[in-house]
Design a protein around this nucleic acid. Structure first.
Lengths: 252, 252
DNA sequence: TCATAATGTGCGCATTGCGCACACATAATT
DNA sequence: AATTATGTGTGCGCAATGCGCACATTATGA
């Protein structure tokens, strides 16, 4: 597969698309479902599935395919090889202890944020912020502070490309509203997501700049909305986040 | 790449090997290092690396390659798609609360165990038992109860194939000793690893049978050795583990 | 500066991944 | 129960894709 480019292995791209297709479904998938999801012919999909099964990354129960734990080797490769999660985890845990809420660190990944570290849960909050979890960037506090660090043209392209879903009555979905929120995050140096992702959930986030002043990470605290008003969050949680962000900044 | 088999895509296998090579190193890798580690020619390794970079799974700083958080999509695909981690996590958390120690669930993956769920850390124990972490099966309590559920021929083959490293003066490495420990785990229905992996660390584990009576999972509690003797662990922790394992058994 | 090692690149080639067509199996409908 | 529709497995021939090679270029170390 030259794809207009010499050093590109199309078979690898297709195989990875098959893994993602399997992972995107909560149910086990048939051959045809995988083929459709990964945009391949049935014959090709079958070859990739059989290869993954042979290598131990997937299994086949005679009718349907699913991933095996072995595939964690691929994802966790990042944690083994990158120093950032190791540096971030203690910081996030300490913020969690001091605030008695859930603290997290995430990066931008396409139109989503991807969680890299998280403190222990102190209370039931249903939004899943476990490590490796993804959420839409546009309506999360972390997403907004990360977008705020982008060039304006990037932000505009982002806003033009997304199809924002309205998760709650409070979810901002208009381009102008979102742009205002992102620019506000840039101006204030933090963002609050106020029941936009889920009713009853509030988050506050700050950016973490690295030694070159680049912002590729952000840190947040999330909690049940009943516990604090946005103003209280600014007053009580923001200082902790800023201290944690400053500390992590010195390490990366 | 037919490899004596028609429906096998060798390029996918090589690409996945490159991901694992990157993940196995704590430092960023040069092209030649990846090629050596993944047993490929430089030209092939370069193609796979450039493909991964193009797809966002890896990045290149002009000299060296490393994985990006995007690769978490592959690993975490398992958690999104499999019900087991969701079912297991609350159980493990409750055992952690009741015992005030770290509870974990793991599966066998080759010669290693792979952690799938873990309760919050209550105290500093240095052995890394985070989700996705791998450890050698031969000297961990979980590994031993999982091996105990295997056929004798499997166990013998396993013992013949491994090259056990002696982590501490207490690590069992002789085939006879290991076989005795595994058979003991089978007889007693649990195993204790007593400072074999790391000085100061003790673990106790039980198998979790599924509805067909198959054992593909095990559950453990790990703690600082100073906190309990093996006899105390058997007395205080084993009942909790057995209750948790029985509960999880009804769900899978 | 020189020698060595590593990386980047273009090339021709054969092998590998490809889609196709058909046989077979399963599920759904009449 | 018979028929129809859908999905899966398999063998095949083919050309496009991944391949290694050789050389140019760059980087590193002494």
């Amino acid at each position: 597969m030259r794809s207009g480019e010499r050093d590109y292995v199309g078979a690898l791209q297709k195989g990875l698309a098959v893994i993602e297709a399997l992972g995107a479904s909560e149910a086990r998938l048939s051959l045809s479902e995988v083929a459709r999801s990964a945009s391949l012919t049935r014959a090709a999909a079958r070859r990739y599935l059989l290869t993954l099964a042979r290598l131990g990354y997937a299994e086949f129960d005679g009718g349907r395919f699913s991933l095996t734990p072995h595939v964690l080797r691929l994802g966790y490769a990042y944690f083994s090889s990158a120093s950032l999660p190791r540096l971030a985890q203690p910081i996030v845990e300490r913020i969690g202890e001091r605030t008695h809420e859930v603290a997290s660190i995430a990066v931008l990944d396409g139109a989503e944020i991807l969680f890299l570290a998280r403190s222990a849960r102190r209370r039931i909050i249903s939004a899943s912020t476990g490590v490796g979890t993804r959420m839409p960037a546009y309506c999360t506090a972390i997403g907004r502070v990360l977008l705020a660090a982008r060039a304006d043209a990037d932000i505009e392209r982002f806003l033009k490309d997304i199809r924002p879903k309205k998760f709650t009555p409070r979810t901002l979905t208009g381009q102008r509203d979102l742009l205002q929120a992102i620019l506000g995050a840039r101006r204030e140096g933090y963002a609050i997501s106020d029941e936009e992702l889920e009713i009853g959930l509030r988050s506050i986030a700050v950016p973490v700049a690295d030694s070159r002043g680049q912002v590729r990470l952000a840190m947040s605290v999330s909690l049940q909305a009943a516990r604090m008003t946005p103003a209280q969050m600014t007053e009580h949680l923001l200082p902790e986040l800023r201290a944690g962000a400053a500390q992590l900044s010195t390490m990366i």
